[in-house]
Amino acid sequence: MKSAMFSKVLLFGFLSNCMFYVVSAQQTYGNSTVSALFAFGDSILDTGNNNLLLTLTKVNFFPYGRDFIGGRATGRFGNGRVFSDMIAEGLGLKNLLPAYRDPSLSSNDLPTGVCFASGGSGLDVMTARIQGVIWVSDQVKDFQNYVTKLNNVVGSQEKTNEIISNAVYLISAGNNDIAITYFMMPIRKLQYTLPAYTDLLVTWTRDLIKSLYDMGARKFAVMGTLPLGCLPGARNMVGNLMKICEIFSNQAAEMFNRKLSAELSNLGTTFPGAKFMYIDMYNPLLGLINNPQASGFIDVADGCCCTPTSVIPCLDASRYVFWDVAHPSEKSYKMITPKIIEDIREQLA
């Protein structure tokens, strides 16, 4: 009798362990074939890679992170979680996408993805250099180092290749190139017309994709720029007393986005076996700006914090479309991500 009871206990324990691993696998891969998420580009995705850089472009201090878990300033450019975190969660991977350069990064986080993006960065090397942040090409070098570490963690090149080829590569670049390098640095305007410069940005995007493709990447989700002229920083320019959207920056953003979308639709023939999708960030965010009441927002022109008009942070960031001069609030990201996650699952998973 005791022997039979003991056998039942062992069998129950074995089945429980089996169920644990099945549930864990489901939590890791969700309902898709996406193995991991890797983020490249700028502050829309950065989760803390700038914290240890000698740059002013970092936000690892209060009030940033005010609405994050534990109220911690992690280096995310917002009041809480950012876009890359929400995409990782929506794909069933994890709630937070860790920064690759975070000294406390756990080996357990490597197989399901990390963030290489750097706030202030862009496709143009000048964009990164003038701020002392990580240029996208250097982010690819970080990814190369990551692959070596991943191989050591998972124990085989075959498993590493499987993770790399089934991951989604999320890219956000072009915002700073247009808003800062082109419109604020005279040298680029002297060198290129706006059409020529946006052509260059698309070419550099293709170069970035090729670098990742050559390392095994196959699923690309590439984001267009925000409506740059409607950011609080652009609205609050000297002389803009009405705080209306700045038309030239928006026109430049639209021009780049059109070209980027068209380029991505044709890349399948250039990179066999790869999938590409364009993520429209411009129109969903503009929708929140043009119809704020529908989503419970009360202010679309000012940031909740850290602007000349918001020296003292607002009490409730969820009532603001923007957190600071250039970054959406956590709630804004929450409003626009569900449809994007659905599209990623349909087109890439």
Rank of each mutant, 00 (worst) to 15 (best):
F271D: 07
V300Y: 07
F248K: 13
G80T: 00
N145K: 07
L286S: 09
P313E: 11
N166T: 11
I341D: 12
E263H: 08
S43G: 12
C230R: 07
G80N: 00
G75L: 06
I87N: 08
M215A: 09
F20L: 15
F77N: 00
A221Q: 08
I180L: 15
L260C: 03
V168A: 01
L226M: 15
F276W: 09
S43Q: 05
I164G: 01
Y278F: 12
S318A: 08
W323T: 03
A4I: 13
A25N: 13
T337D: 04
S310A: 12
A179C: 09
K339S: 14
L170C: 05
S249D: 09
C115R: 04
K219R: 15
L96D: 10
D280K: 00
L93D: 05
T28L: 10
W204P: 06
C230F: 10
L285E: 03
W135V: 02
S7E: 11
T270Y: 11
N49M: 07
D142S: 10
C115K: 04
Q293F: 05
A294W: 07
K58C: 01
T47M: 00
V168E: 02
M335R: 13
R76G: 01
L200E: 13
M277Y: 07
C245F: 06
A217T: 07
L212G: 06
V325E: 14
